[in-house]
């Protein structure tokens, strides 16, 4: 077999995410959205006055938070998803080069080499996963107050409040980046990206 390596592939679209992966992202994003929206209604005075119904809002917030890890756990039956988790986990020398370029505010493509995921995406994925678990843990301490000494609830509330603020800022950054890159969004919506985009943004990625 003599596959023509270059010619037909140039202008076509390349597969970036499987159907399962797209749904993992959608479900997680929806649950995170509910958590953020209900949190805002519990926390920001103007919204709290508008919405009231504290007991109901608390229940929705609790359940959305509890379910938040489920899409990722369910997704791990998918091989494509597990493989991408592997990509996100493992850092190569090019990721350090990418991070160094960001720290030096070096915007040249050549100084920001990335495989399927760049170092920023890898950092975000790992941090948001950890932060979600911390939110879940502290949230459970606040929810089931009888399970632990009550002292723990105050401490859990403290961590939950401040981390919520941090997650909000980081999430806004995540969404802002996506808003600035229509092709990346198309990748999550359709599962495919243009080859030009892939070669420009992720030169080391071999789809």
């Amino acid at each position: 077999m003599h596959p023509p390596v270059e010619a037909p592939a140039r202008s076509t679209r390349v597969r970036r995410f499987s159907r399962g992966e797209k749904w993992v992202h959608r479900a997680a994003a929806a649950l995170m959205g509910v958590c953020v929206a209900t949190a805002a209604c519990l926390y920001i005075p103007a919204l709290a006055e508008l919405v009231g119904r504290r007991e109901l809002v608390v229940r929705i917030h609790e359940w959305a938070g509890l379910l938040l890890p489920v899409p990722v756990l369910a997704g791990s039956v998918s091989r494509a998803f597990r493989k991408d988790l592997g990509h996100l986990n493992r850092w190569g020398p090019h990721d350090r080069i990418w991070l160094r370029a960001v720290l030096r505010r070096d915007h040249r493509r050549a100084s920001r080499p990335a495989a399927k995921f760049n170092a920023g995406q890898k950092t975000y994925a790992a941090w948001i996963a950890g932060a979600t678990l911390v939110m879940l843990g502290t949230g459970l301490l606040m929810w089931f107050t009888r399970l632990t000494p009550l002292m723990w609830r105050s401490s859990a509330t403290f961590v939950h409040d401040w981390l919520a603020l941090t997650v909000g800022v980081v999430l806004a950054g995540h969404i802002g980046m996506a808003l600035g890159d229509p092709e990346a969004r198309r990748g999550l919506r359709t599962g495919e990206v243009s080859r030009e985009w892939a070669e420009r943004e992720h030169p080391l990625w071999r789809p």
């Binding site: 190569g92 941090w127 950890g130 301490l141 401490s155 859990a156 403290f158």
Partner: peptide, 27 residues
């Protein structure tokens, strides 16, 4: 799917969890 390279992602995740636990203790 098993890439070469260091499992930094896992370390960042566990580090975040550790900081969260530390935060509860130091709250």
């Amino acid at each position: 799917g098993r890439a070469d390279g260091s499992p930094i992602g896992r370390r960042v995740l566990l580090g975040t969890l550790g900081l969260g636990a530390l935060g509860v203790v130091a709250a």
